[in-house]
């Protein structure tokens, strides 16, 4: 029996082409297996093989999503694959968005089963978990060895049209699908048992997890900015030169707070970026490209905005956990509220 054909998607980093300096490379097609594809291919054995690999820079994909989608689909089509694999992307945000988007697209447009893998907090998971099978991985490539067998098992099942079990059995991120099953005990009894366990403080597993829609309603629009104070916050990692607070280049555990009293412009001599998740050349040349203080000062002088708050806050949004980001936001928000700040300009790369 002929081996089934798989096309694999990687970013510039996992394909071994380069780091952030190559993140703007457009989609490129290579015959055969590359990087993490090797481990996947080996584990697939005689059943299937990766016949081609598509590589695209993370920044390119996210900055040109429509062009990238078309190019990538056109590259995949001629192979008539039986399945499409992407990643795994772990906690790399732009990569995760690309993997999940392409997997979804292949599924929709080419009617070919697709599978990807990433960390649960990857924004790609939030965007596509309902539509695509996403194997849950650890947050770094160190978990590759654990991710490969799970991805391969699911790949084989999808290729053979076998039934896919529950998220807990298979190791993918829950898609919110409910299925009818027969249980020994009727619903009322199960509900009462659950309640008793809850009252006793024991473990219990709900049969219907309520979705958590944590949305904050938009604050009211402002009328006239000319008498208001606006604060600047960034996840783009702009810090005074030499990064005095040592804000980490990825998985940040802290943020910095810096006075811009009397400063009109963020110059390359005085400021830089600590962010390790994008090519820092442009931000280091002119930090206003990430945190536009020069223009804000002009607008303050012209009376369009009242005041720029005298401190700016900065962290690195690169694999930084949702928990940390939330904690930063709460502390920053509290300070800004107490300082009487009226609005915030928050910039991200």
């Amino acid at each position: 029996m002929a081996k089934k054909k798989i096309v694999h998607y990687l970013n510039q980093f996992f394909a071994g082409i380069g780091g952030e300096e190559k993140a703007d490379m457009p989609p490129e097609l290579r015959e055969g297996v590359i990087g993490p594809g090797m481990a996947l291919n080996a584990a697939l054995g005689d059943e299937a093989e990766i016949v081609a690999t598509i590589i695209c820079g993370d920044s390119y994909f996210n900055e040109n999503p429509e062009t990238s989608k078309h190019k990538i689909l056109d590259m995949i089509k001629p192979y008539e694959p039986d399945l499409f694999l992407a990643g795994p992307a772990f906690n790399a945000g732009r990569y995760g968005v690309a993997c999940a988007t392409v997997a979804w697209l292949v599924q929709e447009e080419l009617k070919v089963p697709a599978l990807t893998g990433m960390y649960i907090e990857n924004p790609g998971a939030d965007l596509f978990r309902k539509a695509v099978y996403i194997v849950e991985t650890g947050n770094s490539a160190a978990s590759m060895r654990k991710a490969v067998p799970t991805m391969v098992t699911m790949t084989k099942k999808l290729l053979n049209g076998e039934e896919i079990g529950t998220p807990a059995e298979e190791g993918y991120i829950p898609r919110g699908i409910r299925r009818n099953v027969f249980r020994e005990e009727r619903g009322s009894r199960r509900a009462v048992n659950m309640l008793i366990s809850k009252l006793k403080g024991e473990e219990y597993e709900t049969e219907y997890a309520m979705p958590s829609f944590d949305r904050v309603p938009p604050a009211d629009a402002l009328q006239d900015l000319s008498h208001l104070t606006i604060a600047m916050v960034t996840s783009g990692g702009i810090v005074p030169k030499a990064n005095p607070d040592r804000v980490e280049s990825s998985s940040a555990s802290k943020y910095g707070k810096y006075s811009i009293d009397g400063i009109d412009d963020l110059t390359a001599e005085e400021y830089e970026t600590a962010h390790g998740g994008y090519d820092p050349v442009y931000a280091n040349e002119d930090p206003d490209r990430v945190l536009p203080l020069d223009v804000m000062r002009d607008m303050e002088r012209e009376g369009i905005i009242g005041h720029i708050y005298e401190w700016f806050y900065s962290t690195v949004g690169n694999g930084t956990s949702v928990g940390n980001s939330r904690a930063f936001g709460i502390r920053i928000g509290k300070e800004l509220k107490e300082a009487g700040v009226d609005a915030v300009l928050l910039t991200s790369t």
């Binding site: 996210n62 900055e63 945000g93 732009r94 968005v97 924004p123 965007l127 944590d214 949305r215 904050v216 938009p218 604050a219 009211d220 629009a221 402002l222 916050v233 996840s235 962290t315 980001s325 939330r326 930063f328 936001g329 709460i330 920053i332 928000g333 509290k334 800004l336 509220k337 700040v341 009226d342 609005a343 915030v344 300009l345 928050l346 910039t347 991200s348 790369t349």
Partner: peptide, 22 residues
Amino acid sequence: MVKEIERFGIPVVHVCTVVPIS
């Protein structure tokens, strides 16, 4: 961060490149 700051009733404008993440 955007959400938690806005929870204090302060309007936040998020200027960012990857809109789906925002």
